[in-house]
């Protein structure tokens, strides 16, 4: 498996750290309530198909990435910098 880091180019999976679903970008407000936090930390869509995930190029530039990947074929269709995605989320909301 290889991932195209927007900073460094195509690199072996060994250089990357996987964290989980990209929902972790949307941290709830401290007072958002039990259900919102349960959603954020525990519950997962966990699709058998395309999904957005958070990876970090920790063996490289250190960038956190939002990787769009299919969990059945493992095909990667998009890689974006998490900070760009987060900024766009901010703008949209």
């Amino acid at each position: 498996m290889r991932i195209d880091c927007p900073m460094c180019g195509s690199r072996d999976r060994r250089e990357y750290y996987y964290q989980g679903g990209a929902v972790m970008l949307a941290r709830p407000a401290p007072d958002a309530g039990e259900a919102a936090w349960d959603d954020y930390l525990h519950l997962r869509e966990n699709p058998a198909g395309e999904t957005e995930e958070l990876w970090q190029h920790d063996g490289g530039c250190g960038a956190w990435l939002v990787v769009t990947r299919d969990t059945v074929s493992h095909e990667i269709s998009n890689v974006a910098l998490a900070e760009d995605v987060k900024r766009a989320m901010r703008k949209a909301s």
Partner: peptide, 13 residues
């Protein structure tokens, strides 16, 4: 393998 998967197969690392 540490990444989410339904593929029932892994990778070399």
């Amino acid at each position: 393998d540490f990444y989410a998967s339904y593929a029932q197969r892994g990778n070399m690392p």
